[in-house]
Amino acid sequence: MLTSFLCFLHIVGTREKEGTELKQIIYDQYDLRVERKQRVRQFDAFWSNRVLYIMVPVAHLEAEEIDELQKISDYMIRTHKDIYVSSFVKNKNETYTTEIEGRQMALFRMPYDYSSRQLVVGKELAAFHTHARNYPAKVTAINRIGQWKSLWVKRVDQMESFFREKVRSNPVDVFDTQFVESFPYYLGLTENAIQYLVDTELDDSPMMNDAATLCHHRFTDLTWQQAQWMKLPTDWIFDHASRDLSEWIRVECRKGKDMNHAKIQAFLQDYERVSPLSSFSWRLLYARLTFPIHYFECVEDYYTSGPVADKKWHEDRMKTILQSSTHYEQLLGNFYDLAGVPAKSYGIPVLDWVKK
């Protein structure tokens, strides 16, 4: 008991010391006094003079990417008065990144709490895309427009090679077995997505609303921290708007029998009231929805997580994906009907093998 108590005191003392050191670093680097700490999403945040600040790791971003993200966020705040965009905070060295506890971090000033406002996600997303589409400068560092095919091909080629190695060495645990047994199906789905994308780019033409805009790496209901409506620049990437639409819908589709069709319909209708989608947009959305990025990420996360990984958690995650595959396939087969898109009159094809 005494040993446990002493360990507890040591942990508490260490945390208090770290907290004190962090407060000093924030004061030294930003001239801000940490009054109260909290967590926002998975990040450390603190209050100072009635303003909430959030610290975000940015080691994965190149200097050019941070520069573009800062300029675009400033544009969204100043030109379009987007009160929900979190703004970069400069340190005393007049830079936007600071080394804190061995990590490169960026500090953001959070928007004021407008949580009493009832915003509609689809409508707000469409306005966000429309405003960002008018950004006057050329975007290069965070640009991903037109790169889906090459990225998808590279990804599936790497995983197919890994799959062959696993088959030769024989599966040794539960996740190995799940992966080896399921990969051929998802390989086929991926090939369909790539071909659908290629056909779209050959057979259809983009319209004005198909120009590149600010998107998110993975847009979901939680991305904007809706209790406070926070738009965080480190989430952003420059791409086609259908990226955000498809990733939001993907999360709902993966709920299997709990999928809410009415919620998907409302989301798309709310978006189109502000920014109508062309047939080119619908086809890109469908291609991305077909590409099983959630499966790829699950496999990649497991095999790169190292020996301390919670294997059971990863196995359950994979199991959930596999169990929802039938419902996901049904959604792909009936997607245009669900979305209210007259696919035939638009000349939009549907994957024959999933059409029920």
Results as ranks from 00 to 15, higher is better:
residue 224 W to M: 11
residue 344 K to T: 08
residue 232 L to E: 08
residue 233 P to W: 04
residue 25 I to G: 00
residue 89 V to P: 01
residue 78 R to V: 08
residue 287 A to L: 07
residue 122 G to D: 03
residue 150 S to H: 02
residue 8 F to T: 12
residue 124 E to W: 01
residue 79 T to P: 00
residue 271 Y to Q: 10
residue 331 L to K: 08
residue 108 F to I: 02
residue 326 T to Q: 12
residue 203 D to I: 03
residue 256 G to I: 02
residue 100 I to A: 06
residue 283 R to N: 11
residue 205 S to M: 12
residue 140 T to F: 05
residue 85 V to F: 01
residue 337 D to P: 00
residue 156 V to F: 14
residue 354 V to S: 12
residue 109 R to A: 13
residue 333 G to A: 03
residue 159 M to I: 15
residue 312 K to E: 09
residue 341 V to R: 07
residue 143 N to P: 06
residue 217 H to D: 09
residue 3 T to K: 14
residue 329 E to F: 02
residue 179 F to S: 12
residue 142 I to Y: 02
residue 251 V to L: 09
residue 148 W to V: 04
residue 117 R to K: 08
residue 62 E to Q: 13
residue 192 N to F: 06
residue 115 S to Y: 12
residue 32 L to K: 11
residue 198 V to S: 03
residue 228 Q to P: 02
residue 283 R to T: 08
residue 132 A to F: 10
residue 262 A to P: 02
residue 190 T to H: 03
residue 346 Y to D: 09
residue 231 K to M: 12
residue 89 V to M: 13
residue 198 V to D: 10
residue 275 S to H: 15
residue 230 M to A: 06
residue 336 Y to K: 13
residue 25 I to F: 02
residue 253 C to M: 13
residue 312 K to C: 06
residue 349 P to T: 07
residue 300 E to W: 05
residue 121 V to N: 04
residue 328 Y to E: 04
residue 127 A to P: 01
residue 143 N to F: 06
residue 115 S to E: 05
residue 150 S to A: 11
residue 279 S to N: 12
residue 15 R to C: 04
residue 181 E to V: 10
residue 322 L to M: 10
residue 291 F to A: 12
residue 162 F to E: 12
residue 137 A to D: 15
residue 12 V to H: 04
residue 284 L to P: 06
residue 316 D to R: 14
residue 191 E to L: 14
residue 314 H to W: 08
residue 81 K to Q: 14
residue 253 C to Y: 07
residue 69 L to F: 01
residue 289 L to K: 11
residue 239 D to C: 09
residue 190 T to K: 01
residue 271 Y to L: 03
residue 115 S to C: 09
residue 309 A to V: 15
